[in-house]
């Protein structure tokens, strides 16, 4: 009987310990490399945005609601505050969504100016900038191949695009692609085998890139002849 009581107390104690562990507030930086690996930079209209910086907030939801955390960004050279938005990752739809209070405001600490916003919920947040140029580039796969999923990563623009639909033409929502950008694809051959191509530079995958550096809204044929 006594052993049972002691065991129950121990269980409760362990439970409380684990509960307090999960509620421990934590703020962690999210780098572009992490966004490239785990997320994307699509907004809720699935338009690509430029990732500027990111962080994750974990902690007690009640405490954050009562005591929102202020996030402060040092103004970024050649970037207007009005063009930037703080967005929250929606893991269900896999897009960055707006949330209440996401607009950046000017705030000052002494003589120093910041862009700031209040965070009253846990989650993964990113400072994003709109991309003013709209358009799309098509990448056509060779016959007999379809893509099950792909991921386009362009670090110099801070853009990560992805798709999980079966297609033969990859529709990248950018007017122009960079030859240095990398693409990761899961390809299915007609026979049924699946092959993954990881972090392949576009300049290698699409040889014609170098011939028309200023082309926009183009359709390119992917060639695996040069891929080893």
């Amino acid at each position: 009987m006594n052993i049972r009581i002691i065991f129950s107390i121990l269980l409760v104690h362990v439970g409380l310990q684990s509960h307090s562990q999960t509620n421990m507030p934590c703020v962690r930086e999210i780098s572009f490399e992490e966004v490239a690996a785990r997320f994307n930079t699509h907004n809720d209209k699935r338009a690509p945005m430029t990732f500027l910086s990111g962080f994750s907030v974990e902690g007690d939801a009640k405490s954050l609601t009562k005591n929102p955390m202020q996030v402060m960004f040092n103004p970024i050279a050649n970037v207007q505050r009005a063009d930037c938005e703080l967005m929250r990752w929606d893991p269900v739809t896999r897009v960055w969504a707006k949330f209440s209070g996401n607009q950046l405001k000017k705030s000052s600490e002494g003589s120093k100016m910041f862009w700031s916003a209040g965070i009253d919920q846990s989650g993964i947040f990113a400072l994003m900038k709109e991309i003013p140029l709209h358009g799309e580039t098509n990448l056509h796969l060779p016959e007999g191949l379809t893509s099950e999923e792909w991921r386009y990563v362009q670090p110099n623009l801070g853009v990560v695009c992805e798709s999980y639909s079966h297609c033969q033409t990859l529709l990248i929502p950018l007017p122009a692609l960079s030859p240095m950008a990398q693409i990761t694809m899961k390809l299915r051959k007609v026979g049924g085998t699946v092959e993954t191509i990881s972090h392949m530079p576009m300049g290698v995958l699409v040889g014609d890139f170098w011939k028309k550096p200023d082309a926009v809204n183009q359709t390119w044929d992917i060639s695996f002849a040069s891929v080893k």
Partner: peptide
């Protein structure tokens, strides 16, 4: 131990 995060300054 961190009890409450109050402010986060990005790239100071």
């Amino acid at each position: 131990k961190v009890l409450k995060p109050l402010k986060y300054v990005n790239e100071q």
